[in-house]
């Protein structure tokens, strides 16, 4: 297993002619939880979408597992070529008219295409162990799930692809604090399974507390990078992005 699971070098990207990301270099190491924070419009989500190929990279390299450059590949090409990465979008992260079971099955299909070893039932078991509530609602349409359940299904769908790397875009957005706590617990659980996680979060303080390292994005560039503790302790960053008041 390589040490650096994602190594992004000098990424530039954006929508149409509007450039959002101005040369970002970032790395994610094995079994690491890294959080990206920053104000609205700083390009956090766009960056994550660029890695998975939803937003095409204009220039730069995105090297996965120190071997494949996925810059310029489309999402289904990345998934189908067997690169063990998956992504959970911030909104519309489940298929609303599909049942919970079908949602998870789609994840499984992506997994089976890689002809991964291990029985199908193992995948289901792992999901139900992490998210017991999904098992109770297998035949329900995803549109009828509550906000928290929906996030769990989104995480479950991504996990079904058996990823080594997971990109999470604000998994706790629009959730009540109690539910957000539950999601954070699940993220820690997933990290314990050995999955490397790149997390974008608005609840910066909460997220940094469980992270190994962090990046602060401002207007499409990295304003600060360091260990989670360094960011938490940095007074100026705290004042600007963590909602902490200067005493």
């Amino acid at each position: 297993m390589p040490e650096k699971v994602i190594e992004a070098k000098n990424i530039e990207s954006g929508y149409g002619k509007l450039q959002i990301i101005h040369g970002i270099s970032l790395e994610l190491r094995k079994a690491e939880l890294v959080t990206i924070i920053g104000p609205n419009g700083s390009g956090k989500s766009t960056f994550i979408k660029t890695i998975i190929g939803l937003v095409p990279a204009w220039s730069g390299e995105i090297i996965i597992n120190e071997e494949v450059d996925v810059a310029g590949m489309r999402p289904f090409e990345i998934i189908n070529s067997g690169i063990p990465i998956n992504y959970v979008p911030q909104v519309s992260n489940v298929f609303p008219t599909l049942s919970v079971k079908e949602n998870l099955m789609l994840g499984l299909l992506a997994n089976k295409r890689r002809e991964n070893n291990g029985a199908e039932s193992d995948d289901w078991e792992r999901i139900f162990e992490l998210f017991p509530r999904l098992q109770e609602r297998l035949d329900q349409k995803a549109a009828l799930l509550s906000g928290g359940e929906r996030q769990m299904l989104a995480l479950g769908r991504a996990l079904m692809t058996d990823p080594d790397i997971l990109l999470l875009d604000e998994p706790t957005a629009a959730l009540a604090p109690v539910l957000a706590d539950e999601i954070f617990t699940k993220i820690i659980d997933m990290k314990k399974l050995g999955i490397s996680i790149l997390l974008v979060e608005q609840r910066a303080t909460r997220a940094l507390k469980i992270s190994d390292r962090g990046y602060v994005f401002v207007t499409g560039q990295i304003a600060f990078e360091g260990t989670a503790q360094q960011i938490l302790n940095n007074e100026r960053l705290g004042e600007l992005y963590l909602g902490r008041r200067v005493s």
Binding site: F76, N86, P89, V94
Partner: peptide, 9 residues
């Protein structure tokens, strides 16, 4: 978009 992430062409 989500379909693509699930490996669907």
């Amino acid at each position: 978009d989500l379909a693509q992430i699930s490996g669907i062409d």
